[in-house]
């Protein structure tokens, strides 16, 4: 588009700060250079605090530090160890099970609520929209503390209710319940967020489709499920991928709840937890870096596999 107007050889501009300070030195910047100037600040921090650390971590993962002999280059040895490390794969497997519980519940709730709100067939629509989104404003740390209290065996309201009704107290931190308890925290936190995203996508669908559907005698339900839902499938795919990424990186919730569930949550409960323990408890930075990269690879594989699946299903 821009090329249609031909290259503008040299263009002047006044740097904003200079204008403010009253001096007006003229800096010459061509249209070709302008994007690089604009990108520079972001790229500086992006490279400095993302690309370089990643490169550094990758370098670390190729070395090994031993008490005897110091640090030496070992090539892919750490990775060879990591890919057969049961502590790593236990964590991945746990998160796969966690994700299979958490994601379908969270995303289908989000979708149902978005469709209901979008249909306009409720009272106090914007009140619900904002209320459902509120948990997203609560830091994950605080959300976990809150639910930790609610799950509590003596001061938690659930246990209190059970006692009052002389039922057995539910143990939210038992091996069988811990995944559900953690899943519930993340469902509470992120359902509203996903709902808002679906809602926005639904609202962007042009209204004339609705007219056409009505002419054909479609009910509101048919219209929502047959016309609107298929149109936001790309958005659903995006949210699933973001959920996969978020799930595989789970750390704060189990980390904070460790004290309450000592017998269930160990230091390699999730891969990120494992990498954290390796680095900051065991001081094994090299192996920890390899575990992190392997996790990155697992995230990429899962996301990519889901995209392939979604594409095939779409055809």
């Amino acid at each position: 588009m821009l090329d249609a107007f031909g290259p503008v050889p040299l263009v002047e501009f006044n740097a904003v700060s200079n204008t403010l300070s009253g001096q007006k030195p003229r800096v010459i910047v061509s249209k070709k250079v302008a994007p690089y100037v604009l990108l520079l600040p972001f790229l500086l921090v992006f490279v400095g605090f993302l690309i370089v650390p990643m490169g550094y971590a990758f370098g670390l993962s190729l070395f090994k530090t031993a008490l005897v002999g110091g640090t030496r280059f070992v090539g892919l040895e750490n990775y060879a160890r990591a890919v057969v490390d049961p502590k790593f794969w236990d964590g991945v497997w746990l998160l796969v099970r966690f994700g299979l519980i958490q994601m379908p519940i969270m995303l289908s709730l989000a979708l149902i609520f978005a469709l209901i709100l979008d249909s306009g067939m409720v009272y106090a629509r914007s009140f619900f929209r904002v209320s459902f989104f509120l948990p997203y404003a609560v830091p994950a740390v605080i959300a976990t503390l809150l639910w930790g209290y609610l799950y509590g065996p003596s001061y938690g309201p659930v246990a209190q209710l059970a006692t009052a009704l002389s039922l057995p107290k539910p143990d939210f931190f038992s091996p069988g319940a811990i995944l559900g308890s953690l899943a519930n925290i993340t469902i509470w936190e992120y359902t509203g967020y996903n709902m808002i995203i679906y809602f926005a996508a639904l609202q962007a669908i042009p209204g004339d489709l609705e007219e056409a559907a009505k002419m054909d005698g479609a009910s509101a339900l048919t219209y929502a499920l047959r016309v609107k839902l298929p149109m936001i499938v790309p958005m659903i795919v995006v949210t699933v991928i973001f959920s996969i990424i978020g799930t595989l990186q789970l750390f704060s919730e189990p980390y904070l709840i460790t004290n309450l569930a000592r017998s269930v949550i160990n230091s390699n409960f999730t891969p990120n937890y494992y990498a954290y323990t390796l680095a900051f408890v065991a001081q094994q930075y090299n192996y920890s870096a390899a575990i992190s990269f392997l996790l990155g690879a697992v995230v990429a594989v899962f996301s990519y596999a889901f995209m392939l699946l979604a594409n095939r299903g779409g055809r």
Binding site: F49, V52, A57, N272, A275, S288, A289
Partner: peptide
Amino acid sequence: VLGAVMIPQTALVIPLYLM
């Protein structure tokens, strides 16, 4: 820039800590 979303926190925070 978009791919950066996939990077696990630990992969970034551990080298950041050392740097």
